[in-house]
Amino acid sequence: MSQPRQSRALVIVNTDFCSSDGDVRLRPRRGARREAEKLSQVLAQLSYRVKLMHSRTAKEMEDLYQQECGYEHGDYSVSIISSHGEEGAVLGCDCRPLRLARVFQILSPQNCPALTETPKVFFIQACRGTALDQGVLLEADSGQLEPDSFSEYLRIPPNTAVMFACSPGYGAFLNPAGSMFLQALLAALAGEERSLALSRMATHLNAAVALGCQARGAYEGCKQMPCFVTNLLQDVFPFSAADQLDPQERMEEEQQKPMAS
């Protein structure tokens, strides 16, 4: 049996923020660094080649995606971005926005033909505005809400899925123990949910965050609802070892299973 090609994962976590002139500062994102390191470890255990990058400027993040176009990605390309944000953009550690439309443009078939047939999966932990669900946010990865930018992030490249930590216009929770969204993702990757098709796994993450998480203390009752956007044309299993087999090997594996009586 041939060995599967090794998929790649890019994990970017921004924790400390200050503009180049020092005039703009955003609060540090406590807990985000440890969370990203745990996710990187789990992805490595799932046979991903992981690149973990800390506190990058908007331009440096853009350059990282330019570099990804030159790598061999194997069967899947996974990105996790954890930062402050606003609708349609994530913020670099220099407090400048990197528009997601720019990232998607870099990975488009026109600019990155090598990834055209590779399923691309994004998990984005960042606020998409300042609206709150049932109260004031404990700690938010938020910049300013930019209205009328909903269609901008829908221009995703073919064969791509994007899961946001929260719905358009809303904030995303973060506390020293980590974020609701990425903690749920971490639990899924470490548990049986990793064997599910990505669409089913996303549904489980929705339920885990929306039904199982809320702020405590003075902000008791605050909630969060993730959002999943995809133009994938078939089920994919990016975190299941069995799915790393090529089609012929998968067929042989299925033939070896006992027939139902």
Rank of each mutant, 00 (worst) to 15 (best):
A208I: 07
F164S: 00
D246F: 15
L39A: 01
A172W: 14
D23P: 00
A184S: 15
Q183V: 10
D16F: 06
R96K: 10
A89N: 04
M201W: 09
P258E: 06
S149M: 14
T15D: 01
T15M: 01
G191T: 07
C112I: 11
F104P: 01
D63W: 14
A208M: 09
L145M: 06
C227V: 12
L115S: 08
Y71R: 08
F17K: 00
I156E: 02
Y153V: 15
C222W: 06
E117L: 10
K51Y: 03
C69K: 04
R99P: 12
L233A: 05
F164P: 10
K38N: 11
A58N: 05
I12R: 00
D133R: 01
V103I: 15
L232K: 03
I106C: 02
N111H: 15
P113R: 00
S40K: 02
E193C: 04
E86N: 03
Y170E: 02
R30L: 13
F228W: 14
P4F: 03
V209E: 01
M251K: 08
Q45S: 15
V50H: 05
L107V: 12
L211S: 06
S40D: 04
M163Q: 10
E37S: 10
Q224P: 13
L115I: 13
A58S: 15
R34I: 10
E192V: 12
C18L: 09
R102N: 12
M251A: 13
P157A: 11
Q256N: 12
H54G: 05
S7M: 04
C69Y: 10
D75A: 13
E62V: 09
A197H: 09
L174Y: 12
Y76N: 04
R30E: 14
I106E: 02
S195N: 05
M251W: 13
E152D: 15
Q67C: 11
Q3Y: 12
M180E: 02
Q256V: 04
S167G: 06
Q66V: 15
C18Q: 05
R99W: 15
E220S: 04
T203F: 08
